[in-house]
Write a protein that binds this DNA or RNA. Sequence first.
DNA 1: CACCAGGCAAGTA
DNA 2: TACTTGCATGGT
Length: 214
Amino acid sequence: MKDKKLIRIYKKLYSYFGKQYWWPAKTKLEVVVGAMLTQNTAWPNVEKAIANLKRKRLLSFQKLSKAKISELANLIKPAGYFNVKARRLKNILEFIQARYQGNLRNMQRVEIQVLRNQLLSVNGIGPETADSILLYAFDKPIFVVDAYTKRIFSRLEIVSSNSTYDEIQSIFMKSLRRNVYLFNEYHALIVRLGKDYCRKTNPRCNECPIQDRH
DNA sequence: CACCAGGCAAGTA
DNA sequence: TACTTGCATGGT
């Protein structure tokens, strides 16, 4: 199924907003940590939490692994849900230690669907977090679906409002070339659009670059 | 002041 | 299977 609409919308967004330069992190580990912390949380709050970890020189695999959950919880407070997220960080760290000897480079070589299933088996990693890690930490060609994607594209009647994560993902991946750069920018552009334009309280909705109501 | 943010898991019927 | 609720800080 060759839906050109998705390509058209991508081009519109890209020419309107330009390149988004995601993910805003230097290392794979920082992407993983950021992906966990940003669950249902505004990015600026995640930045504060990560800055706290960096200030304590804790943003390395070994240091994070040694840190107590209570210490992590205390440092990541600005990102919200800090008790839950500290536990979840430990879960992914323990998984990487057990399965990959704590070496993120070992994960890079693993086939995408295999790695995706492994990530999904970790308590605290759902489909969006798994796919964010795959795409933005490991450069795997997979499309990240989030709340904005669902809302905006269901109002455009490209997906239905009761579609599941996998259904929406499948629609995007069937109509787009399997290309890491494209998937990277497209998701980032959707977030940009959703944040800056497409919300009820925002009067700028009129000047929305894809010309519709979301 | 209310609302919500780059979700997820666990509980309920 | 299909909802609902808890988790929590900080920006608008």
